[in-house]
Amino acid sequence: MLVNLLIVQIITFVGIVFLLRFLFTRHLKSALARLNTLHEENLAKEEELNEELRRAKEQSDALITQSREEADLIIAEANKEAQRIRMNMEEQARKQAEKIICDSRIDCEKIQKNALKDIQGQSIELALKMISELLTETDKVALQYELANGIIEEISRLPKEQFSVPGGEVNVTSSFPLLDRQSNEIKNILSDKLGSPVNLNQKLDPGIIGGLIVEMGGMVIDGTLKNKLQRIVQGFK
Rank of each mutant, 00 (worst) to 15 (best):
I111S: 14
L23N: 06
E52P: 01
R157E: 09
S191V: 09
L19E: 06
E40Q: 08
I189H: 01
A97S: 04
F22A: 02
I209H: 02
L35Y: 12
E90A: 12
I152W: 01
L128E: 13
V233E: 09
T136W: 11
L116D: 09
E137S: 13
V172W: 01
F163R: 03
Q112K: 15
A62L: 11
L49W: 07
E109R: 01
K203L: 10
T12G: 15
N149T: 04
G207M: 08
A76H: 09
G235S: 08
Q59T: 11
R157N: 10
A115N: 06
E169L: 13
Q66N: 08
M87T: 14
L147Q: 05
N88A: 12
K117G: 08
R21W: 07
E81G: 01
L6H: 05
S191N: 07
L19M: 06
K117E: 13
R84M: 04
H39Q: 13
L5Y: 04
E46K: 02
D192Y: 13
N227Q: 12
M130G: 00
A44V: 10
L212N: 02
E41I: 03
T173Q: 05
A97F: 03
T138M: 04
G121Y: 09
P197T: 11
K45G: 02
E40R: 11
T173H: 00
R94G: 01
A82L: 10
K237D: 11
K99D: 01
E91N: 13
S183V: 12
G167V: 03
E153Y: 07
K226Q: 11
A148C: 14
K99Q: 07
S164F: 14
M219Y: 04
E47A: 08
A31P: 05
C108Q: 13
S174G: 06
L225T: 07
T136Y: 11
H27Y: 13
M89F: 09
S174I: 02
E51K: 15
K113S: 14
E146N: 00
A76E: 01
L194I: 08
A44M: 11
E91F: 12
